[in-house]
Simulated assay, not measured.
Amino acid sequence: METIKNYKSYNENKSIEELQFNLLQDINNLEHLKLELEFYKFLLEKPIFKIHVINLYERLSDFKHDIQSLDSKRVALLNDIYLHSNHIEQKIECDDMACDAFFIHEHDAVALRIFEFNQKVKAFKFNFFQYLESVFIN
C-alpha cells in the first residue's frame, strides 16, 4: 500500500454540509488523538524497556518531546478548525463566485494543514512503534 504524500483538494464542488461534516470528523479525530498521545507518554514512563540499550534515555526523551510537540500542534490545529468552522457558516450567505472562491481557498488551506499534520502523526507512530518493538523487555 502506497502512502499518499501530496494533498489534493476536492472541496470545490462540495456542499456546505459536507464541508462541515468533514471538519467535524477532523475535530473528532484530533480530540481522540489526545488520549492516544497521553497513552504514549504513559508507556514511556513505565519500566518496560531492556536495560543496557545504547542511548535509551535520550531516545525516550526525544519521543517525549515529539509527543509534546504533536500535542501542541494538535491544539493549535483544533483552534484553527473551530475558527474556520465558524467562518464556513458564513459561506451560506455568499451569492457571488468571488466569495465562494474565498471560502473554498480558506477551507483548502485548513484541509492541507490537517493533511500535513496527519502525515507527521503517521511518521511519528511508525518510528515510535518500530523503536519500542526493539527495546521492550521480552
Rank of each mutant, 00 (worst) to 15 (best):
I92P: 04
A98L: 14
D71P: 01
H65P: 01
F124G: 06
S85F: 15
E12C: 12
K91D: 01
E133A: 13
D71G: 10
S15P: 10
I81S: 05
D108V: 00
Q68N: 14
E38D: 14
F39E: 09
F63K: 03
N13C: 08
K41M: 07
I16N: 15
L77E: 01
L35D: 11
I4C: 11
E93C: 10
E18M: 10
E36V: 10
K5G: 09
F124I: 07
F103N: 06
E93A: 09
I137W: 05
Y131N: 05
K14Q: 14
I88K: 02
I104D: 02
V110N: 00
Y40G: 02
E31R: 13
N22H: 11
Q68A: 12
P47M: 08
K91I: 05
N13W: 10
M97I: 13
V135W: 04
K14A: 05
K125R: 13
N13P: 00
R113F: 02
H52M: 06
I81Y: 03
D80E: 09
Y82M: 11
M1K: 09
V75F: 10
L43I: 15
E45D: 11
A111L: 02
Q90S: 12
V110M: 02
K120L: 01
E93L: 14
L43D: 05
N55G: 05
D26H: 09
P47S: 14
A111F: 00
F117R: 00
S72M: 06
E12F: 12
S61E: 13
K50G: 05
N79L: 12
M97Q: 15
N22P: 03
I4E: 10
K91R: 13
S9Y: 06
N28D: 13
N79I: 08
D66P: 01
F136A: 09
L37I: 06
Y40V: 06
K14I: 07
F102R: 10
F128H: 07
E31Y: 11
M97Y: 12
V121C: 08
I137V: 15
N86P: 02
K41F: 02
K120T: 00
K91V: 03
H87D: 13
L24H: 15
N79H: 12
C99Q: 05
I51P: 03
S9V: 08
K5T: 15
A109M: 05
L30E: 02
L44T: 04
K50S: 06
R113P: 00
